[in-house]
Structure formats: structure tokens, C-alpha cells
């Protein structure tokens, strides 16, 4: 299916130019969510992703939407950068103190509801603590609102698997938020 050529005419630079204003903010949000607290630059990585899209445009065969294809390139670019970053951190372990994620914790007194700003900071920190694949699936669905079909296309998974992984990722997000001090709210049923 992937190798089938659906698009007889190669994607032109002009066509891409028209899509960039629509795609760029969405891809940027995904990249930002993925690299938060890592020291990697979201804008640089977004630009790297789009440069690859322009460079590889002759490979686009129309088997998925242009947005999904662009997203897939951005996803791979970000995951590669995160992998390289982790390796560098392992090699240069002595400088880790400088690059260690700046964790945010909820106010220990904790009975009052967190204000929205605190909650956002908490959410970002919790997201940064998730495994890349959990963070990515939550970003795609809950931040970007992508459909399950789109996510399945990007991740090359069955829709059922996407849903099951999303549930697991949300469970882990919940655990991280509670570890960071977010009030679990009532657990009554």
C-alpha cells in the first residue's frame, strides 16, 4: 500500500508554500510539546522538519494526506533529535546537572485548586516525564485533535492499537500528574 503511487504529478514547491502557513503552527505545537524541558529548540526542529519536507517532496505519493505525511517527517525528526539528545546526556553525564529537566511541583500545601498557570506548568512537566511514544500519542490526540485514522497512518498501527495505547499513555500521564502533586480529585465512583 505504501509503495503504491497514487499521485502522478510530483508535489511542487508552490503547493507546499501554500500549505506551510496552515501546517507550521500545528507542527510547531507538536514539536514544542515533545521537546519541553529537554534543551532542544522547538523552532529549529520545526524548521528542520519543513526543510526535509521540501527536500523530499518528490517522494510524496499521495497515499496519505499531505498533513499526515508532513507530520510523519516531523515526528521522525523530533524522535531522532530526542534520541541523540539522550545519547549525548549519557556520554556527557557530568554536565547533566545543567541540562536536567526543570521539574515543577505543585504547591505542597496542595488543598487549594491549582490556578491555571500552575496547572499548565504541571502538565508540561508531567508530559516531559513520559516516554517519547506516550508523549507523542497524547500530543497527537489530545493536543492536536488528530483522528485515530490519522494517528494510525503516522504511527503505522491499527486504529484499535492506537486507542489502547492512548488509554495507557493517559494512565501514565495521570500517574505523573499525581506524583507531581496534582490533586487526584475525588476517587469516588
Amino acid at each position: 500500500m505504501q509503495n503504491e503511487t497514487h499521485r502522478p504529478v510530483p508535489l511542487t514547491e508552490h503547493e507546499l508554500d501554500r500549505q506551510v502557513p496552515d501546517f507550521y503552527p500545528r507542527i510547531f505545537r507538536m514539536v514544542r510539546s515533545m521537546v519541553f524541558n529537554t534543551g532542544l529548540d522547538a523552532e529549529d526542529l520545526t524548521q528542520d522538519s519543513f526543510l526535509k519536507v521540501y527536500k523530499k517532496r518528490h517522494l510524496y505519493n499521495g497515499s496519505s494526506s499531505l498533513y499526515t505525511w508532513t507530520y510523519q517527517i516531523a515526528r521522525n525528526t523530533v524522535l531522532d533529535a530526542l534520541r541523540r539528545d539522550k545519547i549525548q546526556r549519557r556520554i556527557f553525564w557530568w554536565s547533566e546537572a545543567e541540562t536536567e529537566p526543570d521539574d515543577y511541583r505543585a504547591n505542597e500545601s496542595g488543598d487549594e485548586a491549582l490556578d491555571r498557570r500552575e496547572q499548565q506548568q504541571l502538565l508540561r512537566t508531567a508530559m516531559a516525564r513520559l516516554a517519547d511514544k506516550d508523549r507523542l500519542i497524547i500530543t497527537m490526540r489530545d493536543l492536536e485533535g488528530m483522528s485515530y485514522d490519522e494517528i494510525a497512518d503516522v504511527e503505522n498501527l491499527a486504529v484499535g492499537t492506537v486507542k489502547s495505547r492512548l488509554f495507557t499513555a493517559r494512565q501514565r500521564l495521570k500517574d505523573e500528574l499525581i506524583k507531581l502533586g496534582m490533586h487526584p480529585e475525588s476517587e469516588e465512583e
Partner: peptide, 8 residues
């Protein structure tokens, strides 16, 4: 959960 991400 998507509600958590409204601001982002």
C-alpha cells in the same frame, strides 16, 4: 484529558 490541553 483533551480539556487539560486547551491552553497549550
Amino acid at each position: 484529558v483533551p480539556g487539560l490541553f486547551a491552553e497549550m
